[in-house]
Write a protein that binds this DNA or RNA. Structure first.
Length: 1015
RNA sequence: GCGGAUGUGGCGUAAUUGGUAGCCGCGCUAGACUUAGGAUCUAGUGUCGUGAGACAUGCGGGUUCGAGUCCCUCCAUCCGCACCA
């Protein structure tokens, strides 16, 4: 059912409307697991529906994934290509606080706008699978997964998460003494003790082992805002919104024991096809370091008050440097500090601890370079040298990493070195290769010296040897540490998933699964309570249950829903299970994931964590959620920036005639041209970019007088500023004048009168142009300075897909987005280039028309036509596979240019071409397909395959280079051997000319490629 | 400071394995046509030079018959992390 197009005009608006309706009615993009085809799951990252809607940067990844999805359908795959929304989050909450309206209202409005824009650009999503994290039908299952995590523990022996029941069995049989689990510190109990525990005591003990547990943690507390902030809301120690001070505050929080998975999360990175950059960020974030734990005994030095010598355990990655350990440093919070501090040093130590505690986040950040510390008075014994070494405390040692204590090796650690210099502690060289008097030698290479049995060994070997010795002596062991911390899972917010948790006597219990979901209740006020609790805490009726128990009032963080949403798409309407097992079996996991790199340590890490947990517990069958991933680059905006002067008052004159008789605009001393404003209004001067660049006087003047102003980019067309549009933009621009090197454009609205210059007026495009110089080299064009910046409302550089679609159509827009360059690269959006693809579509359309008549020829194609087609099929298919979509568009252009030159309108060529193009430009393809007499959709056709036989050449024009520089060409039969080619080449006039007739020293023939003659 | 990525015409880019650097498009220049347009078509367009030619892929070296591509040094830009022992 083609549109009855009577003319050869390519009317994209009608065509696109028509076919979108058709696809909608036919359910063309509905996914069907029962098709029996092989599966392909291609996913876009979950968008947060912001109030601003989509700009041209957003659809880049969506269009790319859509092309791949359509391509895979043509290839016979059943494709899952869904879309939904990460609908909980801060902007909606902030909106609610500001307006008093429900955040759901704001969210719904934004979702509607997103949906409308996404549908507009013909993304082939199966919309029947749309999900929203804020929908109770969805978050019921987020809560359900939380419950599973809560009822699980991590068994280090089996190296996986297990049902908490298996732990309870172990406890009742053997107690916890021999349990190897990822856990919080807990007291040792026997099976007998366990069995005699009350229910409450049991629950308390189990909480230390659960994968979701309650812990005390420092949160970012912002007093001025009366709320807790997420890390990403804090910048340099102050709140991102408002810039108020943020301090650390200890609060009870839910945690996810992601650290249990640290090693598997780091190891699995080697098995997935993700961008190296993301994998590297995750590796650094998890921060695996291999080293050793070593005990240092405290000295019984008479100066020390220690009666029962104890030891301090440190973690080090450089056990080889232990002979160079000349002092120790503990974190101020270290448990032993109080115990070992001598009476003499107590005051100093207490003062140091006190000031370290008081430091706000901001001060801590600001003072990272200041070296502080205090001596405890205690000494430890270096187990290898036997020397007494002083024990210090300093806040450069972190309490929650390793053992919260280090052996300081100032010769080979720059932080220790700085500390030693500051407090005059000894520095010993133990690895050759630097000068430890001047700087520490941190490099992990060199030969050991001053190190007893390690002398002469290289660092790598020495590390192994030192660990062996530490082990033999029984003072420590090899140890692996991770930088990764357990993930805070509590938010003191309203707009998030409520926890399925009820407290009885302060012990958390999960809500019965049959009572899920725990619905987010309505509240009176969305404002923070000021006490650091979520707004839910104010709902006493909701919080307090009749039996005296109470609900958890925190909500889950944004990443809860996004950690598993990709699984829900497989069976979005299953009311009985979070995921239908048979669907999981079919879809498994995401084959190809496209999105931004900004989620490297958030969503992309947490998703892997949850997925692994679900795998351990048998809910999914794959190790990881996303097999292959690509990060699309950011599209930047092109901002128009104009220097402007806005302080001129009407009473002042603006231009003046200089001694040589030219009209000039000078600095503050300039004024006084024979032009004067008569209305008494303020005027605005805008200056051309070349004025700005070239004029020295102007340059100095601008410092004091000019502001660089962003103006709406849509007022710039083909590099020219639309004066009228700018003047109408803001009322204070009503009398704007435009100054360029050669003169000034003044609006003809009669606001100026002239003195002595009446005759020099020229009428230009509705403006009075007043030349200010006789110098004809000075340009009369008004040029714009443009700058590449992030797309944002405040820069007036937002371009919406809507405006592009209206002017050029969806197909042109889609193709242009891809044409911009490689998908991974960030690049600026420049609307001007879209004409190129727009012309391409018209040229393609015209291939099918003879004047106004649609004509398709049934003639057999010739060799050239076949070659053009098959070359294109080959290139496009290969390029989609390697995700190089910009080069696909080039190939299509070359193809249509060539067919146009051949005036080809043969069905045998154009039919495959239309199928080939349909993933990129689905509307025009569908229209042409149906015009060629087909009743079914082009989207259902098999993708063409190229045939090599049409591509083979019999001859090749060899470039002939002499000493590596191409000097001539020669057309030779490809059947010639290397020797035959060489014989032909050496005879060539050009070659003889460059070799002065002498025989070449050497001739290199690369068959079918190039010939190089060395003379 | 550490780690990662990227540097090619006026602009976006191409060159999949070491083999003709600049494909495709924008812009620009000239011309044609005309219903005078935000249309279409033709030719040209890396730089210098009248020309032969020379020089050109951030800078400087190296390997090679041959380097945008491989190796070394440096520079610039962007993005992570930032006292993690």
């Amino acid at each position: 059912m083609p549109l009855p197009c009577k003319t050869m005009d390519y009317n994209f608006t009608e065509i696109e409307k028509h076919w979108q309706l058709y696809w909608d009615e036919q359910n063309t993009y509905r996914t069907d697991e029962t098709s029996g085809k092989p599966k392909y799951y291609i996913l876009d990252m979950f968008p947060y529906p912001s109030g601003a809607g989509l700009h041209v940067g957003h659809p880049l990844g969506y269009i790319a994934s859509d092309i791949v999805a359509r391509f895979k359908r043509h290839q016979g795959y059943e494709v899952l290509h869904p879309m939904g929304y990460d609908a909980f989050g801060l902007p909606a909450e902030q909106y609610a606080i500001d307006t008093g309206n429900h955040p759901a209202e704001f969210t719904e409005k934004n979702i509607a706008r997103y949906r409308q824009q996404l549908e507009m650009i013909a993304l082939s999503f199966d919309w029947s699978r749309e999900v929203k994290t804020s929908d109770p039908a969805f978050y019921k299952w987020t809560q359900w997964i939380f419950i599973q995590i809560f009822h699980s523990w991590y068994n280090l022996t089996s190296n996986k998460a297990e049902d908490i029941k298996t732990l309870i069995d172990i406890f009742s049989r053997d107690g916890n003494g021999n349990v190897k689990a990822a856990s919080s510190p807990s007291e040792i109990f026997s099976s007998e003790e366990w069995n005699n525990y009350s229910e409450e005591e049991k629950q308390k003990a189990l909480l230390n082992y659960r994968l979701a547990y309650i812990g005390n943690s420092e949160v970012n507390w912002c007093e001025a805002l009366g709320t807790v902030l997420a890390n990403e809301e804090v910048k340099d120690g102050v709140s991102e919104r408002g810039g108020y001070p943020v301090v650390k505050r200890n609060m009870k929080q839910w945690f996810m024991r992601i650290t249990a998975y640290a090693d598997r999360l780091i190891e699995d990175l080697n098995t997935i096809d993700w961008p190296e950059a993301i994998k590297e960020i995750q590796r650094n974030w998890i921060g695996k370091s291999i080293g050793a734990e070593v005990d240092f005994n405290l000295s019984t030095n008479p100066k020390s008050e220690i009666r029962n010598p104890k030891s301090i355990t440190v973690f080090t990655t450089r056990p080889d440097t232990i002979f160079g350990a000349t002092f120790m440093v503990l974190a101020p919070e270290h448990a032993l500090v109080q115990e070992i501090t001598t009476a003499e040093q107590r005051a100093e130590i207490d003062a140091y601890i006190e000031q370290a505690k008081r430091k706000s986040e901001r001060e801590r950040v600001a003072e990272t370079k200041k070296i502080t510390g205090a001596f405890t008075g205690a000494y430890a014994i270096n187990p290898f040298t036997g020397n007494e070494i002083p024990v210090w405390i300093a806040d450069y040692v972190l309490a929650d990493y390793g053992k919260g204590a280090i052996m300081a090796v100032p010769g080979h650690d720059s932080r220790d070195w700085a500390f030693a210099k500051q407090f005059n502690l000894p520095i010993i060289e133990v690895v050759k290769g630097g000068n430890v008097e001047e700087a520490s030698h941190d490099a992990k290479e060199g030969e050991l010296v001053n190190s007893g049995f390690l002398n002469g060994l290289q660092v790598k070997k020495a590390i192994e040897r030192a660990i062996e010795e530490i082990d033999t002596k029984g003072i420590g062991k090899k140890q692996i540490n991770f930088r990764l911390r357990d993930a805070n899972f509590s938010r003191q917010r309203y707009w998030g998933e409520p926890f399925p948790i009820i407290y009885k006597n302060d012990i958390p219990y999960t809500v019965d699964e049959k009572d899920l979901p725990v619905i987010l209740p309505e509240v009176e006020s969305y404002k923070p309570t000021g006490s650091g609790e979520s707004p839910l805490a104010a709902l006493t009726d909701w919080v307090n249950l009749p039996d005296g128990s109470r609900r958890e009032t925190n909500t889950m963080p944004g990443w809860a829903g996004s950690s598993w949403y990709f699984l829900r798409y497989m069976s979005p309407n299953n009311e009985e299970q979070f995921l239908s097992p048979e669907r999981e079996k079919y879809w498994q996991n995401v084959d190809f994931y496209i999105g931004g790199a900004e989620h490297a340590t958030g969503h992309l890490l947490y998703s892997r964590f949850w997925h692994k947990f679900l795998y351990d517990r048998g809910f999914v069958s794959t190790h990881g959620p996303f097999k292959k991933m690509i990060n699309q680059g950011m599209i930047q905006g092109m901002s128009a920036i104009i220097p402007s002067e806005s302080t001129l008052k009407s009473s002042e004159n603006v231009f003046e005639k200089n001694s040589s008789g030219n009209w000039e605009i000078l600095g503050s001393e300039l004024h006084n041209i024979g032009l004067q404003l008569i209305t008494g209004e303020m005027i605005q001067l805008f200056f051309s970019a070349d004025y700005y660049e070239d004029d020295q006087i102007f340059k100095t003047w601008k410092e004091d007088h000019l502001t660089l102003r962003n103006i709406p980019i849509e007022y710039v067309k083909n590099g020219e500023l639309d004066f009228e549009a700018l003047r109408n933009w803001r009322t204070d621009y009503k009398y704007a004048c435009f100054v360029c090197q050669g003169g000034v454009y003044i609006p003809k609205n009669g606001v100026f009168e002239t003195q002595n210059v009446t005759n020099t007026y020229e009428q230009v495009n509705g403006y009075n142009f007043i030349p200010t110089t006789n110098d004809s080299t000075k340009s009369r064009r008004f040029k714009l300075k443009s700058e590449i910046e992030k797309i944002s409302k405040s820069k007036y550089n937002v371009i919406t897909p809507d405006s592009m679609v209206e002017r050029y159509g969806v197909d042109a827009f889609r193709m242009y987005e891809m044409f911009l360059g490689p998908i991974e690269q960030s690049k600026p959006w420049n609307t001007e280039g879209i004409d190129g693809v727009s012309r391409f579509l018209k040229k393609l359309w015209n291939l099918f028309f003879d004047r106004d008549t649609f004509i398709i020829s049934e003639d057999a194609p010739n060799a050239d036509e076949l070659k053009t087609l098959h070359k294109t099929i080959k290139k496009v298919s290969e390029d989609i596979e390697r995700f190089s979509l910009n080069t696909c568009i080039s190939s299509f252009m070359i193809c249509v240019n060539e067919l146009g030159a051949m005036k080809c309108n043969k069905r045998a060529i154009l039919e495959p071409l239309v199928i080939l193009l349909s993933p990129f430009a689905p509307h025009i393809s569908e229209e042409l397909w149906s015009k060629m007499g087909h009743n079914d959709s082009v989207t259902k056709q098999a993708y063409p395959k190229h045939k090599d036989e049409y591509l083979v050449e019999s001859t090749f024009e060899y470039p002939v280079s002499v000493n590596g520089k191409v000097r001539a060409k020669i057309n030779l039969d490809l059947s010639l051997t290397k020797e035959q080619v060489e014989a032909e080449v050496v005879k060539m006039e050009e070659v003889l000319k460059w070799s002065n007739g002498a025989a070449p020293k050497k001739v290199i023939v690369v068959h079918g490629r190039i010939v190089n003659v060395v003379v």
